[in-house]
Structures are given as structure tokens and as C-alpha cells.
Design a binder for these strands. Structure first.
Length: 751
DNA sequence: ACGTGGCCACTTTTT
DNA sequence: GTGGCCACGT
């Protein structure tokens, strides 16, 4: 072995050199799996003489793919451009662009994002005249997506339907699919599903790719779903040189169809698979790692493993509880600023992780106020913004006029005086004649009762035709600018002059620079930039892909988005029962969901290299009303001698102590930790023993009583549930309807 | 045809 | 607290 492999530890070396046959690498957090993957690729090329052309590496995000390619480049030097390093979705798009005509699609298909899917479903719900109370778009979309993740067609779903909801869902699915086919569109799930279909129906195509990809590597294997599993299985079937890397403890996408069994049963599916464990962690301090180990040990369904590290013990894990989310945010922002001022950490060394995107707001406010550069990953996707979607719809229409959705979106944007009635008439005509929506527009004069609208429609068609002809000559960026000019989109916003319009214009400017950046990147890759490729790239970028490691900013993101990343200092905010673990696990009453939450916590803890701070708030505004929260059970699962609870409120923080009740929460916490020393076997932790002071022993009203609420008025108590620290009271108000509230806050008066 | 105001549901996580 | 949707009025 050449020198570069000597820096690897023995199991890592084994994982690199075991190149033939199926291989499962169980790589604990921070165990250097990316290093193993990149060295393995280098080894294949350099030592085994494998043609880079024959290697396929699948990662979870584009960012990870870029990083991997970069690192392989550094190891191997030239020749690695021809390695396919990409996500499942972009790999499938590449394959489908070449061969989807075998399935009767046009290779020029468009990709529908979640928003587009929603419009399609919504339209169908309306056409089927379904009760939207029962058949919610979201639920239907989830059904369809779930089915596709499991490679089920609408017929399969109809066959398995157990009730009328499922039957209807199958009907909607069938119609949804035919709309997509008509529009020559594929949704995210289709990208995988159709590729599997292509391989299964056309063995010669499969054979081509089996020959092409003799060596396959899959990262984050624990998060693959059935469709992805099948895809990989098909590709690897012939040569069996499949190397998957994953960690069952980091499986956090069950809700999206990820099947942890893909990793737990790898050895059953590939009986002669070699299994290698990477258990040495290079990332975190010993105390952080130990905390992570203790937390995850509470899960039952996992492969037993013991992560260890030779790193320094490091600092204790900091835990702080605050009165509310504002103070939590203020604290975290203050800590970051202080550390930077003192030269201890840069902004980019710090990341704030939380369970739900909604939590980002408070941090954003405080960071903005403090003048600290930051970037929020996730939330509302840049490309989901209205102005961006509008402009992209123009580009999509130019690119593929079969995409009815885009055409309809822009027909009256900006306002052209073409209203719903006209649109409905065109739609009806198109359906009668078997035309696409745009085709119907082009022959609008044939449509009866168009009247005054005809002129306007002709204007629109002319605009699109002109843009289409320009698309031949113009670069992507020029075309986009032409759209902006021809439609007067920005002008209209400027005329508005509001702050909101201002920010929309900024977004549009950003889109223009993104188109420029795309062109440059494509040319750097030696490709000719095309409109289709630009649109495709946009459809497949995740927000995390736009994180720029060279910029010094604080990163804020959900725990999910943080997977695969690492930071010197990690803040885990909102460590509260009901928020994290999230309440929905209780709705399902599902132990597995709780375990998934715990894995998410494990992922969060193991992102931290040097320092980890966990915070929680006693009260938090959730869905409009204030709720009391006790400290997350996950915090309790960390042995107390690993935790630094900070100063007491009385000592150091007079501002807090004046607001808080006489009992210091920190003193309470200490008691709690002291009272209940950590036991590894403890199966039922009592998470709610922090600061019970708010609980009233008795309420002066009971079920059936009439009470008055300051805001909601008079109502009747229908239910009282004893919560951890308070009573949850359900009241049927005369005016405000049924409300659930905490007795401590509601201040209900018996009358 | 289009704008406005009130009502409602919503918040888990995403390629 | 917020954004989306519907109904109504101009």
C-alpha cells in the first residue's frame, strides 16, 4: 500500500482494501467514514487499476458529493472527473435524461417540487369534488409519496386499500400520475421509481449501467428507502462490488420512508457480505462522546457498538435553562459573540441546532440585532418563493411548454386581465381536444366565447414565442433577464415600493446571479450550459448545498440538516419535552418514533467537536399560545457528572432572578441530578422533575363547571388532564369553541 | 376582474 | 403569530 493509506487505522485500512464483493461499513459518528470512502476510491484507481469511469459514489446531498469529489481529486490527481459522485436523485436524472423514452416519456421532462405536487393534488381534489376536511392535500401527498418510496403503483395501492380513504387516495394517486405524465413531469419520488422501472423493464439498459458501475459506494446508507435499496441492488447485482457505509444510530429519515432494516439486514440480503466496524471517533472530546453514548444506549433496536476516542476529555457539556425562548436566544447569541471577541471561536465554528424550523426566528432576530453574520439553512426554500417560482415558471414554459402547471401559473402573472373564467374555458377546451394547455392557448381563436380575452391571450402567446426564439441565442442568464424585462416583473415591484417588494427584488437579483454562477460552473466542468440543465440543477439543490465553508457566519439549522456536518461548538436549543422529543411521537404512541427522536439527539450531540451547549426554555410560544415545557428527557439521559449546569441565577444573573419565582431553576436542577444519579438500566426516566414549583395542588373548578377566561369568555370545562407540572384543561367556550390550555396560565375563574 | 378583510389551520423533520 | 384561502364588495 502506498503511503497515503498509512494514516488510516487498521479497520479503516481494511475497509479501504476490501474492494471485491459486498461490504457493510458500520461507521460510528466521527469515525472518519468520508476519509475511508475517499481513500477507497483512490485505492481502487491507484492500486487496483480500476477505471474511474467504472465508479459510482452516492451521497446524501450535493454538498457532500462536491466535498467527496474534491477530496478524491486531492488524493488521486487527475482522472477523477469521470467518477460519478452524486446524490440518488441527480444520478437518476442523468440516467433518465438518456433513457426515459423507453418508458414513453419525453427525455425533456421537468421536475416537480413539493409545491408543484401540491398544486396538482389540489386541482384533483377539486375536480373529484372531495371533502377537503377529510381528504387533506398533505395527507394525500404523503400517501402518494409513501407508495412511491415503496415502489407501489396506484393499482397496488387500490388493491391494498382497507377503507374508503385509502381507496380515494389510490384514485387520486392514479389521476396525479396521469397528470404528471401528460405534463411530462416527474416528482422527486418518480426520479427513483422510474429509474427502477426502467431497469426492470429494460434489461439491456440495466446491463449497460451494471457494466458501467462495477464499483458502487453508498454513503448514509441507513437513510435509504426501499426504492433506493432496490435501485442499488439492481445496479450491484452483476458484480456485487457494493460498499455501503452507514450508522443505524444516525437513521433519522424514517418519516420519509427510510428503512432502517436496509442496514440491519444487509447481511441477510448479501450473505457473503463483509462487515467492518469503525468505532474510533476522531471528532469529539471524550466527554461529548460519552454523553452521546449514554443517550443512544437507551434505544433498543440497534446494533451494539462502542464508540471510543483517544481525544482529550475536554469540557463538560453545558446545560442552561431559561425562562423563555427569547432569553435562550439572547444567551446563545451572547455566548457566540463573547467567544469570537475573545478569539476563542470564529462565527463559522458555531452552529445552532434545533428541532423545528420555526425556532430559527428568535435566533435570527437576536443575531440581526447583534450584527452577527449568520445563515439559516432550510425553512422556506429560496426556490419556493413566489417571485422565484414565477420567473422559473417562465423559463420552464420556454423549456417545455407541455408543463401545464407552469403555463397556468404565469398566464396572468403579471396581471394581463385573463381571469378564472377564461382560464377554465381554455382548460376545458384543451381537455376536449386532447391538447396541452399551451397548445390550446395557441389556437385560442378556435375556442368559443373567448371575446375580449382573445387579444390578451394572443399577447401572451406572442411573448412566450418570442422568448422561445430568443432562448436559442441567449445564454441562461440573458434569457432570465429578458423575461424580467419583457414581463416588467421587477418594474411592477419597484412601483409597489414596499419593503416586501424590495426584498423580492433582492431575491430576483440573487436568482440572476445564480444563473450566472451556474453557467460558470458548467463551463468549468466542461459542459455546455443549457436552460434544461439549469432548471434541473435548481430542482435538485438542497438548502444545505449552498453553505459556503469559506465564509465566516454562524449556521442555524434543524438537527436533520446537520447530519454529516461537524462544528467546534454546537448549541442544541429547545431541549424540552414535547418539542424534542417532539410530541407527535406520543400521538403515534410509538416507541419507534421516540427512538428516532433519540437518534436525532445523538446526531446533534455528535456534531460537536470541542464544546456542546444545550439549552431549554420553561415557556415557549408554540402555534400561537404559550406552553410550559420541562427539560427534555434526553438531557436527563446524560450522566450528571458530564454536565455543567452553570452559575445559579441568584449569583450571576440578577435580570433573570427578578423575573423568576423565588426558586432558582438551576438549584432545582442540581437537586434533580443529585437526587437521581444516572443509571444505565433505567428504562423509565422521570423527565419532569425540574422545577415543579409551577404546579398547583388543586384547581378550584372541575369537569362540568362553568368558567371565565380573560380572552375567550365563558365556557364549560370538559376535561382536566394532569400534566407534568400543570393541569391541562379543556374548555368548551361559548364563543371561542374548544380550547386546551394550562391551568397555570389560563387563570380560569369558576363562576 | 381584482382587491380587501376576516377566518382558518397550522408546525416535525426534506431529497 | 403567520400565512393562505374564501367571500364579498367595487
Amino acid at each position: 500500500m502506498s503511503k497515503i493509506y498509512e494514516s488510516l487505522n487498521p479497520p479503516q485500512q481494511e475497509a479501504v482494501s476490501c474492494t471485491e464483493g459486498p461490504l457493510l461499513i458500520l461507521a460510528g459518528a466521527g469515525s472518519g467514514k468520508t476519509r475511508v470512502l475517499t481513500h477507497r476510491i483512490a485505492y481502487l484507481i491507484e492500486e487496483k487499476g480500476v477505471d474511474p469511469w467504472n465508479i459510482l459514489a452516492i451521497t446524501f446531498t450535493n454538498k457532500a458529493a462536491d466535498e467527496m469529489r474534491e477530496r478524491v481529486d486531492r488524493l488521486v490527481g487527475n482522472g477523477c472527473e469521470s467518477i460519478w459522485v452524486s446524490t440518488f436523485h441527480s444520478a437518476c436524472v442523468r440516467i433518465l435524461r438518456r433513457h426515459i423514452d423507453f418508458l414513453g416519456y419525453d427525455n425533456h421532462f421537468v421536475i416537480y417540487d413539493t409545491d408543484d405536487q401540491k398544486s396538482v393534488v389540489k386541482d384533483i381534489v377539486k375536480r373529484f369534488d372531495l371533502d377537503t376536511r377529510v381528504y387533506k392535500e398533505k395527507a394525500l401527498m404523503a400517501r402518494i409519496s409513501q407508495a412511491k418510496d415503496r415502489l407501489l403503483t396506484a393499482d397496488d395501492l387500490a388493491k391494498d386499500a382497507r377503507d374508503s380513504f385509502e381507496e380515494t387516495a389510490a384514485r387520486v394517486y392514479r389521476e396525479y400520475q396521469s397528470v404528471l405524465v401528460r405534463n411530462n413531469a416527474l416528482d422527486f419520488d418518480d426520479l427513483i421509481f422510474r429509474t427502477v422501472e426502467l431497469f426492470e423493464k429494460h434489461p439491456q439498459v440495466l446491463d449497460y449501467y451494471q457494466e458501467r458501475f462495477k464499483y458502487i459506494l453508498v454513503d448514509e446508507y441507513q437513510d435509504t428507502n426501499l426504492a433506493q435499496f432496490r435501485l442499488i441492488g439492481l445496479l450491484a447485482e452483476k458484480y456485487q462490488n457494493l460498499c455501503v457505509v452507514g450508522d443505524d444510530d444516525q437513521s433519522i429519515y424514517r418519516f420519509r420512508g427510510a428503512d432502517i432494516r436496509n442496514i440491519l439486514q444487509f447481511e441477510n440480503v448479501f450473505p457473503d457480505a463483509v462487515v467492518i466496524r469503525l468505532e474510533q471517533n476522531y471528532r469529539s472530546t471524550a466527554q461529548i462522546l460519552e454523553a452521546a453514548n449514554f443517550v443512544i444506549a437507551n434505544n433498543e433496536g440497534r446494533k451494539e457498538k462502542r464508540l471510543w476516542t483517544a481525544n482529550e476529555p475536554g469540557e463538560k457539556i453545558r446545560f442552561r435553562q431559561f425562562l423563555n425562548g427569547f432569553e435562550e436566544a439572547e444567551y446563545i447569541v451572547g455566548e457566540i459573540e463573547k467567544a469570537r471577541r475573545e478569539g476563542e471561536f470564529r462565527y463559522k465554528d458555531c452552529a445552532v441546532l434545533y428541532r423545528t424550523n420555526a425556532q430559527s426566528r428568535l435566533f435570527e432576530e437576536k443575531l440581526l440585532y447583534a450584527g452577527i453574520p449568520y445563515k439559516i439553512v432550510g425553512g422556506i426554500n429560496f426556490y419556493a418563493r413566489k417571485e422565484i417560482k414565477d420567473l422559473l415558471a417562465y423559463l420552464k414554459t420556454v423549456d417545455n411548454a407541455r408543463d401545464d402547471l407552469s403555463v397556468r401559473r404565469i398566464l396572468n402573472v403579471p396581471r394581463r386581465g385573463i381571469g378564472d373564467t377564461t382560464q377554465a374555458r381554455i382548460q376545458a377546451y384543451a381537455e376536449d381536444m386532447g391538447y396541452s394547455f399551451y397548445e390550446a392557448l395557441r389556437v385560442a381563436e378556435e375556442i368559443p366565447s373567448m371575446g375580449r380575452s382573445l387579444k390578451k391571450i394572443e399577447g401572451f402567446v406572442n411573448l412566450i414565442q418570442t422568448l422561445k426564439s430568443k432562448a436559442e441565442l441567449f445564454s441562461v442568464r440573458e434569457l432570465l433577464e429578458e423575461v424580467i424585462k419583457a414581463t416588467g416583473y421587477v418594474e411592477e415591484l419597484q412601483a409597489e415600493g414596499t419593503e416586501e417588494a424590495e426584498s423580492r427584488i433582492e431575491n430576483i437579483d440573487e436568482l440572476v446571479s445564480k444563473s450566472q454562477a451556474y453557467m460558470e460552473a458548467a463551463e468549468a466542468r466542461g459542459e455546455t450550459p443549457t436552460l434544461s440543465a439549469f432548471l434541473e440543477e435548481i430542482a435538485l439543490v438542497a438548502d444545505i448545498d449552498t453553505v459556503d465553508n469559506t465564509q465566516d457566519y454562524v449556521l442555524l439549522m434543524t438537527l436533520h440538516s446537520a447530519k454529516g456536518l461537524e462544528f467546534p461548538w454546537v448549541f442544541m436549543a429547545g431541549m424540552e419535552e414535547d418539542l424534542f422529543p417532539n410530541v407527535s411521537y406520543q400521538r403515534g404512541g410509538d416507541e419507534e418514533e421516540l427512538e428516532e427522536e433519540r437518534r436525532l439527539c445523538y446526531v446533534g450531540i455528535t456534531r460537536a467537536m470541542k464544546r456542546l451547549t444545550m439549552t431549554s426554555a420553561r415557556q415557549r410560544m408554540l402555534r400561537g399560545d404559550i406552553q410550559m415545557h420541562s427539560v427534555s428527557r434526553f438531557v436527563h439521559e446524560i450522566p450528571r457528572d458530564l454536565v455543567d449546569l452553570g452559575y445559579t441565577v441568584e449569583d450571576k444573573n440578577p435580570k433573570l432572578s427578578s423575573v423568576l419565582p423565588s426558586q432558582s431553576p438551576y438549584a432545582k436542577m442540581r437537586e434533580a441530578f443529585r437526587a437521581k444519579p444516572y443509571q444505565k438500566t433505567a428504562s423509565a426516566p422521570s423527565p419532569r422533575n425540574f422545577g415543579d414549583s409551577g404546579k398547583k395542588d388543586e384547581l378550584d373548578y372541575t369537569v362540568g363547571d362553568t368558567v371565565r377566561h380573560a380572552k375567550f369568555g365563558v365556557g364549560k370545562v370538559t376535561e382536566i388532564v394532569k400534566g407534568g407540572r400543570d393541569y391541562e384543561v379543556t374548555v368548551e367556550f361559548d364563543r371561542a369553541g374548544r380550547r386546551k390550555m394550562f391551568a397555570g396560565f389560563a387563570k380560569l375563574q369558576k363562576i
